[in-house]
Design a binder for these strands. Structure first.
Lengths: 218, 218
DNA sequence: CCTACCGATCGGTAGG
DNA sequence: CCTACCGATCGGTAGG
């Protein structure tokens, strides 16, 4: 992505090269670094100086790319949501192609795909964006929260008919709306305790969740 | 501890009365006020000045009662856990008395009691302590976290045999440990979205959770 | 528990 | 994007 050429400046900030220069993706670097720091330390406990250093910049430079620390936080959240939505769409498309049967014929299988993908988004590599969105929403404005709510609605949209179908089939024994909220809670909370290095794998976790929520076909 | 004599200062801080005076419970007031603020704004975004004002003190005074802001946070969490443990024990005792049958004969009923009580602890009136513990644990020391983990173990202890019994009866179709983590996630997440003023009641929520996780007796 | 205060840190900006 | 800087706020303390 970028090469580093040695030059005179003996120490201090990271070298710039032709490849980075004028690159709009310094912005992306800031977002990615901020996501990591916001997740590890929290929004308030992360200084804009920390973020600048993470991207190899000086303390004031993030404000060349973002007008405020809050704007950076929002950028992290929005990028996370858009990526999650796209990834979920891809997973659903792949599942639809794999099966010859109609979608909707196998709601349990679809829920398995949705759950698996959701855990990947939450716990997979590079998965700082959504946890930040989930745990730092207090720090953004009401307007920003409203926009994110729209994106969240888009993300949740495919879940609704699946849960409804399971409910209709008697395999999901709770009010569909409450079931959705409870299920997302169970999944989202995993960022608090799941440790890739020990215990279950993400796949086992997804299987356990599915078994817990959905009853076998009667 | 210290008396306040009425003097000239015409306005400003709340008046002290005979009832408050010499009261060791200024400490409790600080804890309760801090819990409210920590929950609403987060630990980092709450200043010790905010907390002092909430208790009707001057800015430096909380440090007469607590050696640091972090100590206050920890006090909130520990008080919350001890209250939750006691409340849960009471609920279990009441349930055992109500039923003539043996405990363990009706694990589903016991889980219903545990879930209902847990929602009350999370969402009921004065329920700021546990949400603070759940969402601010990043801000305490490893040592403090370890002590809280012990208390959490105490709280979770009654859940384990109940879940195990349901699993053995084929009514809980997931690994017991993962089921416990997922169930707590589903419950704990409710503090993010539950609104007493609209939508379901706490009772309906508890019923939905039970129906979602536990299958009817085959 | 109040008064008065300190050192440190922070988000943000002007000017290049 | 860096340099140099500002005003505000914050946790905490001494001394009473």
């Amino acid at each position: 992505m970028d090469q580093h050429v040695a030059h005179k400046r003996p120490r201090g900030r990271p070298r710039k090269t032709v490849a980075d220069r004028d690159d709009g993706n310094r912005r992306q670097q800031l977002i990615a670094g901020a996501a990591r720091l916001f997740r590890r330390k929290g929004f308030d406990a992360t200084s804009t100086r920390d973020i600048a250093a993470e991207a190899g910049m000086q303390s004031g430079s993030p404000f060349y790319h973002f007008k405020s620390k809050g704007a950076l936080l929002y950028a992290v959240m929005e990028a996370g949501m858009r990526a999650a939505i796209e990834r979920q769409g891809t997973a659903l498309k792949a599942a639809a192609l794999q099966k010859s049967e109609q979608i909707g014929q196998d709601p349990r299988g679809l829920l398995a795909v949705l759950i698996q993908n959701h855990f990947d988004v939450l716990l997979g590599p590079g998965s700082d964006f959504i946890p930040v969105m989930l745990y730092e929403s207090r720090a953004i404005t009401a307007r920003q929260r409203a926009t994110l709510a729209t994106l969240q609605g888009e993300y949740e949209a495919p879940w609704v008919p699946v849960l409804q179908a399971l409910h209709d089939a008697g395999q999901l024994r709770a009010d569909v709306k409450l079931a959705r909220l409870l299920i997302f809670g169970a999944l989202n909370w995993s960022v608090q305790w799941f440790d890739r290095r020990k215990g279950a794998t993400v796949d086992e976790l997804a299987a356990a969740a599915l078994a817990l929520f959905v009853q076998e076909k009667p």
